[in-house]
Amino acid sequence: MERAEAIIAACRDTMLTTLEKIGGQSLICSWTRQDGSVVKLALEIRTSDQTTIGDAIRDMDDEEMARKLVPAVLALCDDGAPSEDTVRDWLERPQSDLKV
């Protein structure tokens, strides 16, 4: 098991280093297992002090949610119910993308 963990860590570090060197902001990889299930790996490069929309929501009080979050969620649903991936991507965007 230790060898597998070392291989995974080396692959992760190599992907992150490559992404940083090419100036990428994110990387999404998908693999199909032998049983047909699909696994998705999403990596995003951001500064450690960058707050995401998800982080901002966790820090909101009720009044701030009513003022900022409700309109943003309604806008997200303009074209119908968004997919789980769309919502996850939205939550991982920078807090500055949360329109007031």
Rank of each mutant, 00 (worst) to 15 (best):
S26Y: 01
P71H: 12
C29D: 07
C77P: 02
E64P: 01
D85S: 10
V100Y: 04
T86K: 07
L76I: 09
A81S: 08
A42W: 03
L74N: 06
A72D: 10
W90T: 00
C11M: 15
T18A: 13
T14L: 13
D78V: 02
K21G: 07
L43K: 07
E84T: 09
E63F: 12
K99Q: 04
A72E: 07
E44Q: 11
E92L: 12
D62H: 14
D89R: 12
K68Q: 12
D85N: 05
R33H: 09
A6W: 09
A42V: 06
P82F: 03
W31V: 13
K21T: 11
T18N: 09
G36H: 00
D79P: 00
G23P: 05
A9L: 14
L27F: 14
T47E: 12
S26G: 12
L41D: 06
E92Y: 08
M65K: 15
T47R: 13
L16M: 09
V73L: 15
S26E: 11
I7Q: 11
T52E: 02
D55T: 05
S37N: 05
Q50V: 12
D13A: 15
R33L: 09
Q95D: 08
D49R: 07
I22G: 01
L98I: 03
R12W: 11
V87R: 03
Q25P: 01
M65Y: 00
T14M: 14
L19P: 03
A66L: 15
L41Y: 06
L76K: 09
V73S: 05
G54P: 01
R58A: 06
Q34V: 03
I22K: 03
I7K: 10
D61C: 04
D78T: 13
R33K: 07
Q50H: 08
I57R: 01
P71D: 12
D55K: 00
T32V: 09
I7Y: 13
Q34H: 09
E84M: 03
K99W: 04
E84Y: 08
I53H: 03
R58D: 09
I28W: 01
T52H: 07
S83C: 00
R67I: 12
L74K: 10
I45G: 04
T47H: 10
A10Q: 15
D97M: 01
A56K: 03
G36V: 00
I53R: 04
L19W: 03
E5R: 06
P82T: 09
